[in-house]
């Protein structure tokens, strides 16, 4: 059994919120640069240049990459031999979000009473927290600030099992095409296949935690990802959907066994400002 202080969790979450919103991950920067090299459409080339320039300005000036600093989605892998001392885990995380969004000059974008008053909570809490209990005595925290523009383009369907690969492909292409410029392409497409209705959406979000260019370890799924990426980029939407070859930087598919009657498919899009930051305690 190992003690981890709630205060250390708060401090870490605070730092991750700020750093995630100021600095684009290296793999995303690399993927954008490679896309810029491959891109043929002149307007799309300019958009990609601007996105890269934006990342440089944000880092230099300690300014949020995007004004939508998102809903704070926090993924945690909690070792089963960890004991959280000095407070509740969720409280520690939310205190970190509060301090990070206030101290880091990030936008507070969370509203209570979603179908009526829609009152801003003023500190971006509560975070959306996913906790996985894993072997060991470490705690891994990942902060994914998720913008509304791309989150609003999420879709879920339960296909008939016989629709298989083709059904999934059509659903992915339709979702990306219909979303147009709304999710800020080039996007990362998270796809969750299998499980149940809520679990496929969770998998779709978790698929966004991968580094760009990292494939599913299962060779069949990895080949499916490559095929989907090719087809998404053949849509011609391009950056901002103003035309071009770069509609997506990656398609990440996560799977889970499912019921014999079902083929659940969840899609969660991530914008090109694919902010993500992890730390381990």
């Amino acid at each position: 059994m190992r003690d981890i202080q709630a205060q250390a969790i708060t401090d870490t979450v605070k730092r991750l919120c700020i750093e995630a919103n100021y600095y684009l991950p290296q793999d995303v920067l690399d993927a954008l640069r490679q896309a810029r090299q491959r891109e043929e459409a002149p307007r799309a080339q300019k958009v990609l240049d601007t996105i890269l320039q934006n990342a440089q300005i944000a880092a230099e000036k300690q300014l949020a990459l995007c004004q939508d600093t998102g809903t704070t989605v926090v993924f945690m892998e909690v070792g089963q031999d960890v004991h959280i001392a000095g407070g509740r885990l969720a409280d520690a995380v939310n205190e970190g979000v509060r301090q990070g969004y206030t101290g880091g000059f990030l936008r507070k974008s969370v509203a209570t009473q979603p179908f009526s008053a829609r009152k801003n909570t003023g500190d971006n809490t509560p975070a959306v927290i996913h906790t996985d209990v894993v072997p060991g005595e470490r705690l891994k925290i990942t902060v994914l600030p998720k913008g509304g523009g791309c989150e609003n383009m999420s879709r879920m369907v339960i296909l008939r099992p016989g629709e298989g690969r083709k059904g999934i492909t059509d659903f992915v292409l339709r979702t990306v095409e219909e979303s147009g410029g709304n999710p800020c392409p080039p996007v990362i497409v998270g796809v969750g296949v299998g499980g149940t209705s809520e679990y496929c959406m969770y998998l779709a979000k978790r698929a966004l935690l991968r580094k760009v260019g990292e494939h599913n370890p299962d060779p069949e799924t990895a080949a499916f990802e490559a095929e989907l990426l090719e087809q998404v980029n053949a849509l011609g939407l391009g950056p901002q959907a103003w035309g071009g070859r770069t509609t997506a930087l990656a398609v990440n598919v996560e799977t889970h066994p499912t019921h014999i009657t079902s083929l659940p498919v969840g899609i969660n899009l991530q914008c090109h400002s694919a902010r993500l930051k992890s730390a381990e305690l």
Binding site: I51, L63, L65
Partner: peptide, 27 residues
């Protein structure tokens, strides 16, 4: 259209900003 996700870059062209209505709406 302005480039979505380029908020840091776009902010550099803004020289003055004043709230002129509905201040209670915050952002």
């Amino acid at each position: 259209g302005a480039i979505g996700g380029a908020g840091a870059l776009l902010s550099q062209t803004i020289k003055k900003a004043d709230v002129v209505a509905y201040e209670d709406l915050g952002p």
